[in-house]
């Protein structure tokens, strides 16, 4: 049965669309594609988009400005459950994810979005980077990719949001990785998460940093 939409969904989406147009004027995007074929891929195919996360604005700026299929963004429960934000999140394209406890609903919801031909975006660091560095990645997005065989497209946002200054976004090529390697997923996917981290660090122009190992990561995805 089709899920019933909460009241005012249409109005909220309309305002969000206007807000998106305003964002384009206030922070005009400068999107650079490493590979032109990725432009077509994003527009025509479902993708798992991974991005660095340095400001809260990222969570609504990227879906508004990146040309792609309908994009659903993962947001942590810490933010999703805040009263006023929750009212908005439930009416827009956001999927809650609980990083503190065992949560598999985000995976199920992500699969449904991808099954419907749409894309998802996730911040694999699982939180804002306060020091500008790219923190270690949670491998959950790779489990989603493993179970759906949907390509992973890395994007990086450079610099701060400054009014009426172009915001630079680099879109990388889809990450080629063998997610179906035999063995324990927690080991394989964490290794692949490090590989993805290396690719995005290079896109950001950062030297490879020594990362927390999988065992050091306290959160679960």
């Amino acid at each position: 049965m089709k899920e019933k939409k909460p009241p005012f969904t249409f109005a909220v989406k309309f305002v969000y669309m206007i807000w998106g147009l305003a964002m384009r004027v206030i922070y005009p995007p400068k999107i650079e594609y490493r590979d032109e074929s990725t432009k077509r891929l994003l527009k025509e195919e479902k993708c798992i988009i991974i991005a660095n996360h340095t400001e809260h604005t990222d969570g609504y700026y990227i879906p508004q400005v990146l040309p792609s299929k309908k994009m659903y963004t993962y947001v942590t429960r810490k933010w999703y459950d805040k009263k006023k934000l929750n009212w908005l999140f439930r009416r827009l394209r956001y999927i809650p994810i609980n990083l503190a406890e065992m949560d598999t609903e985000w995976l199920d919801k992500g699969k449904k979005v991808l099954d419907g031909g749409n894309s998802v975006m996730i911040f694999p660091e699982g939180k804002l980077s306060k020091n500008g560095r790219l923190d270690a990645f949670h491998p959950g997005f790779l489990m989603l990719a493993r179970q759906t065989d949907v390509p992973i497209v890395p994007i990086v946002l450079l610099g701060k949001y400054k009014k009426f200054r172009r915001k630079r976004i680099i879109v990388g090529s889809p990450i080629e990785t063998d997610l179906h390697e035999k063995g324990r997923p927690s080991v394989i996917l964490r290794r692949q998460a490090d590989l993805c981290h290396g690719i995005m660090a290079e896109m950001l122009g950062m030297p490879e940093v020594e990362m927390n190992t999988a065992e050091d990561m306290s959160a679960v995805h």
């Binding site: 179970q147 927690s186 999988a214 995805h221």
Partner: peptide
């Protein structure tokens, strides 16, 4: 020594 990522594989 499984972890939450492995639990997703168990679910599948």
């Amino acid at each position: 020594g499984l972890d939450s990522i492995d639990s997703m594989e168990i679910i599948a």
